[in-house]
Design a protein around this nucleic acid. Structure first.
Lengths: 336, 336
DNA sequence: AGAATTTACTGAACCGGGTAAGTTGTGGTG
DNA sequence: CACCACAACTTACCCGGTTCAGTAAATTCT
């Protein structure tokens, strides 16, 4: 079961290896007739260039890397990452780049993986998610000169490309909407406080609330359902409990809905709920959740495009993707 | 920013390339003193062997492939695949194998990807999910002699390793449990009917019901929330509606719960719900769902181990992983 | 002590593509 | 007709590891 090489094609076509290489890569140096003959033979015997050999002589491994740094139990139900991966894939497979994945436990291990992948020339670039304050990954990427695109800013990344969405605008829209409905006590259950986009959201939430003369209560959480439930309970046992809660992801919002139901509170009558990121999960539950919708797959595709441009040596700066917009559903209404 | 090679190490250590290779790979042929000197230098300059060069001369690409063939919108919220991926990773990264991922639209494209990956020597083996009747992927894998492990049987795969769980036993347990609670009209919303494990479950469900003198109603669905809702509505508008429904995955079960609530039926009072696969999703909703629990990550790790054994040339047969067991929660009770 | 074996290396071929440099052969031009 | 330009190749080396055959020195055996 020997897999065919260009030498096999060359022998059958009666030309040299070099000619075959030129022919298959669309390089000048062979006549059109010869090129077609060679291409036909390659087709016929099912030739695929050995990616290792290619990577060894050329430069590109035609693969990009993605590390997922969240506990395994949350990875499973967070629609976010899979949506992102689908988006990457759409762009990468169109340019026949492979996606190499690794699940890691800590940012330190993530850095190790980047070093190894780059050292092994396994990948041409990486997609970095969950940008943090003073993120330890950024200096390493700069030192290695490893092409990268960072999702989850904006933050300080030097020359490394970034892509982010205008979370501030979205959260302002959500707060204004709730206020228009008549809510005055609006709380928020946030994602991991160490992440930069969480901080951006918190700042925007605080600013919007104070400009409207409202108190801004944010309970930090970690995107998991358990923590989302806990945070919701803490908010709802308060005598002066909020009439609306904005959650930083859909999983926590669903968990919050269950807590409200368990406590005998009607949604949306006693409590309005807004989820950030509108996965099918939001429409699955009853009542369906009002959500801040954005096209996650398109976000991922955008990031992949930027990364490929950066790998091609093009200058890429900071790009803002589309803003999330409010999709009102059954979980929001004027407070009783 | 040139990445170091064994030639760099050889020069600094004053030995030949070959000696460095022996030293770093633990091969005999160098003295212990020299080996330690070489390893120290490699450490110091941060050497990583170029995986392309290694793959070119050796044989192994030290990577395995996984294709995901489900529509993007369902991939996002199905905890199943991410759980599986976490499991693979645990095993693969321990043996420093990379995981290469591709999202595809159809089994035909899946086959194309296998051919290309194998032709390019990008991977050493693949993990095949969602085994179907007369699966077109099996003959291709056999023809290519591409090491593989198949998840989702049992089915006819010749010499290709398989791993499956005893779905029949689990579904029997669920039906018996519901009958013991007093249910007599039990329905089931299944996954894609083309998949072999769906058929195995359907058969077991039918057998168990008929042995207990019950009518077995299975509505085929496709694992998505939308279809799960539709199937549930179809079942619940019946005058002789079931008092319990078993769903083939958690996403459809959650959707079914929402439909029941929307129709004013109390869960579990008017309708009991059992989900297959116990992701955190099941505990998130209210009431929390009774589920057929199995350790998906362990299932994935098991599959990865089998695949690596098969890549190492060991004979692997059909392996049965642990049976799912019933985890009773708030969504099941005696019918009113 | 001399032969046989073992140890610790070196040198070179090899994997399968990419590509710069060299070699034909053809046609056009002055 | 000599000369040049250019197309259409071939040749040969490169990438960075692995591995096998060969060699000199050290050790063991008789």
């Amino acid at each position: 079961m020997k897999r065919p090489t260009i030498a096999d094609i060359a022998r059958r076509a009666g030309v040299s290896k070099g000619a075959v290489s030129y022919a298959l890569n669309g390089q000048p140096g062979v006549s059109e007739a010869t090129r077609q003959r060679i291409v036909a033979i390659a087709q016929e015997i099912g030739f695929n260039p050995n990616s290792a050999a290619r990577a060894l002589s050329g430069a590109s491994a035609r693969a990009v890397g993605l590390t997922l740094c969240r506990p395994a139990r949350i990875l499973g139900i967070e629609p976010w990452f899979m949506g992102l991966i689908s988006g990457f894939e759409a762009e990468l497979s169109a340019r026949s780049y492979a996606l190499t994945l690794q699940v890691v436990a800590t940012p330190e291990l993530e850095v190790e993986v980047y070093r190894r992948w780059w050292g092994e020339r396994r990948i041409d670039g990486v997609i970095v998610t969950d940008l943090r304050e003073n993120d330890i990954r950024i200096p390493v990427l700069q030192q290695l000169q490893l092409p990268a695109v960072v999702i989850g800013g904006p933050g300080e990344t030097g020359k490394i490309a970034q892509i982010w969405s205008d979370d501030a605008g979205a959260i302002t829209e959500a707060v204004r909407y709730l206020v228009a409905l008549g809510h005055r006590r609006i709380a928020r259950v946030s994602g991991l406080p160490g992440l930069l986009h969480t901080q951006a959201r918190t700042k925007a939430f605080n600013d919007t609330c104070s400009s409207l003369g409202l108190e801004a209560v944010t309970v930090p959480s970690d995107y998991t359902g358990e923590e989302g439930s806990r945070a919701t309970r803490r908010l709802l046992i308060d005598t002066d409990r909020p009439t609306a809660i904005i959650y930083d992801n859909d999983v926590m919002a669903v968990a919050g809905l269950a807590v409200a139901q368990e406590m005998g509170l009607a949604v949306p009558g006693d409590l309005s709920i807004v989820a950030w990121d509108d996965s099918p999960l939001c429409s699955l539950v009853h009542p369906p959740l009002t959500a801040l919708t954005r096209d996650i797959a398109e976000y991922g595709a955008h990031a992949a495009r930027e990364l490929l441009a950066s790998i091609d040596g093009k200058e890429v700066g900071n790009v803002e993707a589309g803003t999330a917009h409010l999709t009102p559903r059954g979980s929001t209404a004027p407070p009783r």
